[in-house]
Design a protein around this nucleic acid. Structure first.
Lengths: 194, 194
DNA sequence: ATTATTTCTTGATTCATATCAATACATTGG
DNA sequence: CCAATGTATTGATATGAATCAAGAAATAAT
């Protein structure tokens, strides 16, 4: 069950068996059933979570009670409220399992410890965040440059199985659209394909 | 003139005099006058630039020839087309000086060298990208959650001197607005303040 | 100084998407 | 099985921002 996690690490750093043992002592495993929360706004984000199975989403709620999805995290991804994790301020984010999920948690203390105990961990984190930064930059420019229709089709091309795993209104929220608008966009797309 | 650069590095890592010497051997200095380009679309991004003086912007041009500003980089910031830098594919970004500027360039080969020659450089980069990732996440959620007026006032509160240094139509582009819309938003704001 | 160029403002109109409202459809739970 | 809840569709209308167009203001160039 830690295999996914060590696999992920191995992609950004060299990882010895001894180091794996150190990791094992500094992580914990958590299971969430669908609809359960890893974090709710107002709490402090105590750990970074690696998703070894299932899927989570993080979202914000605005004054009008609209949800805005920040991130989906299927297996192989990390999720947290980074800002709260680092500053230890209260979080404005909610993180919820949208499938039954298995998580590997790294607490702040453990993270700090691992950074010095496992030298390659800096490199891993560097590559991890650099990649995350690049993806986010693409997402932002897509928001600016693409039409609503293109945003949706591009999302499908990158994550083809997303419609099977994520309800449509959440996809709409992730794209910054109302459910109604996404429904109409899809209608147009399917008419075209006939 | 390298002081700004070493200061920046020191904020994320410990930096010995010996390491400074290594850096000096692996960086180059470049001056750009206003309107000159560090990178134009179609080229390969050969280096990451640290802005020690002045200010640059990176932007994309869409099919309708509209510019979309991705980033402003005043002194103390890094700028590049990360994607092109890493993959060595051609860039779709333009990077232009919007003031007379002084840059410190790190080529790809140097970057790779420095990562191993200066152990703390991983830590620096990790923190750098982690911070950049968090800022970008805020920018994205602001785009989703704030009204046009709020986007502008928030930008002003974070970068109060931006109106002095950056033409208004570029601020509009950065916020994803047309110049006309920003002009009208400002009019409303100033009427209110009377 | 005077012209040229860039930047900003203002008005009229169009367009895309949000909003509001109702209904259909699907899934879950007692 | 039926109610309850959650999810998706569809229509009518409102709204905010884009677009088109013209002119004013500011800045730079000769």
């Amino acid at each position: 069950m830690l295999d996914n996690f060590f696999n992920k690490l191995s992609k950004g750093m060299t990882l010895t068996e001894a180091e794996k043992a150190i990791f094992r002592q500094h992580i914990s495993v958590k299971r969430l059933r669908k609809h359960q929360y890893l974090l709710q706004e107002g709490e402090i984000c105590k750990s970074v979570a690696f998703v070894s199975k299932g899927m989570l989403r993080s979202y914000l709620v605005d004054e009008k009670n609209n949800e805005h999805i920040i991130q989906f995290a299927p297996e192989g991804w990390f999720i947290s409220d980074l800002n709260s994790f680092i500053t230890e301020d209260i979080s404005s984010l909610n993180i919820e399992a949208i499938e039954d999920s298995e998580l590997i948690l790294i607490s702040k203390a453990s993270h700090v410890y691992l950074e010095t105990a496992v030298p390659g961990f800096y490199k891993f984190n560097y590559l991890q965040y650099r990649g995350a930064y690049m993806s986010l930059q693409k997402r932002l420019t897509d928001m600016f440059m693409l039409s609503t229709e293109e945003k949706y089709t591009k999302l499908l091309s990158i994550y083809p199985d997303i419609t099977q795993r994520v309800p449509q209104h959440m996809i709409a929220s992730y794209l910054g659209l109302t459910p109604e608008t996404l429904s109409r966009v899809r209608k147009k797309l399917f008419v075209k394909k006939d």
